[in-house]
Design a protein around this nucleic acid. Structure first.
Length: 654
RNA sequence: GCGCCCGUAGCUCAGCUGGAUAGAGCAACGGAUUUCUAAUCCGUCGGUCGGGGGUUCGAAUCCCUCCGGGCGUACCA
């Protein structure tokens, strides 16, 4: 039973007569902070008392008197300023655990009113290999998908591919000018990616060269600015505002110097490479021409459309290979290109309703309180991702009938989504629950975005490979250190895959999604601590007990005797199993899978203590032995299910 | 300039719709092993929750301010 939900329900009913809106007060029933306070605590007596102008302990007493929790709890206790401490009855925990253990859903009810939830996640660019930057969206989105499905929502996942943007113009330009036919024949995606990088580099080269004089001027200007600010500050050494101005001014100077250094570095990279330099010299207008290729594609140019259609299948194959590896499949893969035919209409509609206006040649929506406009048509007539994102909302609402749309996208795009949602609301989609499920950046040890040692972005493929390799080394070391190694080559490979991928996913999911976090192989694959491995190991230990005792899991699930809470640890474990449903509710409430990782880690932790203290196979009392066996399997079922909802697998033996 | 986010133990991070002595993992230190797999368990050490003010019976959490850092900021997505 979801004890917390049940207790809150009762509290809410009691509060109904007392306050107009009981919900926030009912929410103040929480798990106890300290085991000495029991299992749950009610914290709402104090604020209620303040509101009613009565002593808090009196209010607490009144709540206790009218609550009637006898069927759930021992006598409630009022403590401190007015906390109400609740301890669940042991017989109730035992009885409810017994039910849970024979329940296929492990005590997790299906939501009473299911919603249509579109989850937009992963969203790679098709012509570029996926890299570490795609990890969080993919892993978080996948987990949210699985949890919401498990709770009974009608989830539609949609991979909103970047298959139509500026980068395609670069690829088209690259293909027409620089392609290596043999390479394209044997590995088209790799060749397209190379062409993209090449064109991108050459575009940068020319753009930066053109910009450099301006940058240098502005640097010189800033140097003078700093000098004058400094002398002003020197004249009034006690003036804090002037000191601040100097500081700011120097920061700007540093920024500009850094921008120039970075530009010079990129330019030098081309200049110092004879081949690149020759290409750059031969293609001085590459940026402009690449943009033109994009524009031609969007306008329906026959050759570009033909090439686009030729490139796409290979790109999709490559992506799908990656998703297969990650165990992911999408319900829909509607890239930006899908919305192309709708864009002109979107802009017209916005203009007709006077939502968008022309400004500096571009068609923009101005949202009150935001300085930046939402540009739905650029001055050159091209549409932007703002336009296609609006078209996407229209499609998801009108065709998919979405109630909720989740965008699992980097936090740096917050502003875009604020403008997007505000614009959508003006168009009449205010009733749809559109949410930016934002997440932070993965950092390296230097606290800069995670890169390889040489400064390149880390490819997702090689990241996964490295994780599995490192896991393999651990598997080997562990098994080889046993008196007689137990695992076959196939088993080791499979375990390495499960542990390696699980470690990467788990490390990502366990952090609060809005935080940046520092990527660390050692931490994510540590044999001990808050890792996937630790939880997977707990699962494998249960399976070890069953194997050793020669029990089939299905037979154990059919057992129906009483559950004994013979020790405090058994009680803790049983109660924890009943919290699974609460944990999943918590995940969905704020779209935070870290609440599930936390729950699973705690569960594995309690199980480890149980494993230490409570013998199963050696237990002489048959009824107690059966009870423990079932607690073990129930734990395993919950760990396996919980990990599965994070996109992580388990092994029977490791 | 404007906007958003962050600053919690040596390190990495939870906690942030205000609630009881601020938590975890790692690291350090000390214990437990004829193992239902020690990829484990138990214990110890460790914090002016960036500083200052305010609101409150009560603040890591809310408000103001200062300091430090990150990100975004009109035609890339």
């Amino acid at each position: 039973m979801n004890f917390q939900a049940e207790l809150r329900r009762k509290l809410r009913a009691t509060l109904e007569g007392l306050v107009p809106d009981p919900e926030p007060f009912a929410a103040m029933l929480r798990p106890a902070q300290d085991p000495r306070f029991g299992d749950f605590q009610i914290n709402c007596a104090m604020p209620l008392a303040a509101q009613m102008g009565r002593p808090a302990r009196d209010v607490a007493q009144q709540l206790v008197d009218s609550l009637d929790l006898d069927d759930l709890c021992d006598a409630p206790e009022i403590a401190g300023p007015g906390f109400i401490n609740l301890r669940l009855r042991d017989d109730l925990i035992a009885a409810e655990t017994r039910k849970l253990l024979s329940d296929e859903r492990l005590g997790v009810p299906v939501v009473p009113s299911s919603k249509v939830v579109v989850i937009d996640y992963s969203g790679p660019n098709v012509a570029k290999p996926m890299h570490v930057g795609h990890l969080r969206s993919t892993v978080l989105g996948r987990s949210l998908e699985l949890v919401m499905r498990h709770l009974g929502h009608q989830v539609i996942t949609d991979n909103h591919l970047g298959d139509w943007g500026t980068q395609f113009g670069m690829i088209l330009y690259g293909y027409k000018n620089f392609r290596d036919d043999a390479a394209y024949q044997s590995a088209p995606v790799q060749e397209l990616a190379r062409l993209y990088r090449l064109v991108n580099q050459l575009c940068d080269y020319h753009d930066l060269r053109a910009e450099l004089p301006k940058l240098r001027d502005s640097l010189a200007e800033q140097q003078q600015q700093v000098a004058s600010d400094e002398s002003a500050a020197a004249a009034q050494p006690k003036n804090k505002d002037l000191a601040k101005v100097v500081k700011k001014s120097r920061e700007v100077l540093d920024e500009r110097a850094a921008a120039i250094a970075s530009a010079e570095k990129k330019i030098a990279a081309v200049d110092s490479d004879a081949q690149l330099a020759a290409l750059a010299a031969a293609h001085p207008r590459i940026s402009e021409l690449a943009r033109l290729e994009t524009a031609k594609l969007h306008a329906g140019d026959e050759e570009n459309v033909r090439l686009w259609n030729e490139f796409l299948p290979a790109c999709l194959d490559a992506l799908n290979a990656m998703y297969r590896r990650l165990g992911i499949s999408f319900d829909l893969t509607l890239g930006e290109s899908f919305y192309n035919p709708m864009l002109a209409e979107v802009v017209r509609e916005l203009q007709d309703h006077k939502i968008a206006v022309e400004s500096d040649g571009a068609v923009c929506v101005f949202i009150e309180g935001n300085a930046a406009p939402f540009i739905v048509r650029k001055a050159d007539g091209a549409f932007s991702y703002a336009t296609s994102d609006i078209a996407t909302i229209k499609y998801r609402v009108e065709t998919l009938h979405a109630d909720v749309i989740l965008y699992v996208v980097d936090a740096r795009q917050s502003e875009h989504f604020e403008l997007l949602f505000a614009t959508a609301a003006k168009l009449g989609y205010g009733g749809i629950d559109c949410r930016h499920i934002k997440f932070g950046t993965i950092l390296g040890n230097d606290r800069r975005p995670y890169k390889t040692r040489s400064g390149d972005t880390v490819g997702l493929e090689s990241l996964l490979n490295e994780g599995i390799e490192r896991a393999r080394a651990i598997v080997d070391e562990n098994d080889n250190s046993k008196p007689t190694p137990e695992l076959s080559e196939e088993q080791r490979a499979r375990i390495a895959e499960i542990v390696g991928l699980g470690g990467i996913f788990y490390a990502d999911l366990k952090h609060n999604r809005e935080s940046d976090y520092v990527f660390s192989w050692d931490k994510m694959l540590a044999k001990t601590g808050d890792t996937a491995t630790y939880i997977q190991y707990a699962y494998a230990r249960v399976m070890g007990i069953l194997r050793k005792g020669d029990y089939a899991a299905d037979d154990v699930r059919k057992l129906s005797g009483p559950i004994h809470l013979a020790t405090p640890t058994e009680r803790r474990l049983a109660l924890q199993l009943n919290r699974f449903a609460t944990a999943l509710d918590d995940v969905v409430a704020e779209y935070r899978p870290n609440l599930l990782t936390q729950y699973l880690f705690e569960t594995a932790n309690i199980f480890a203590a149980f494993f230490d203290e409570c013998p199963v196979l050696k237990e002489a009392d048959a009824s107690l032995k059966e009870s423990r066996l079932r607690l073990c399997l129930g734990t395993a079922d919950i760990l396996r299910t919980g990990l599965r909802l994070l996109g992580i697998q388990v092994a029977e033996q490791m």
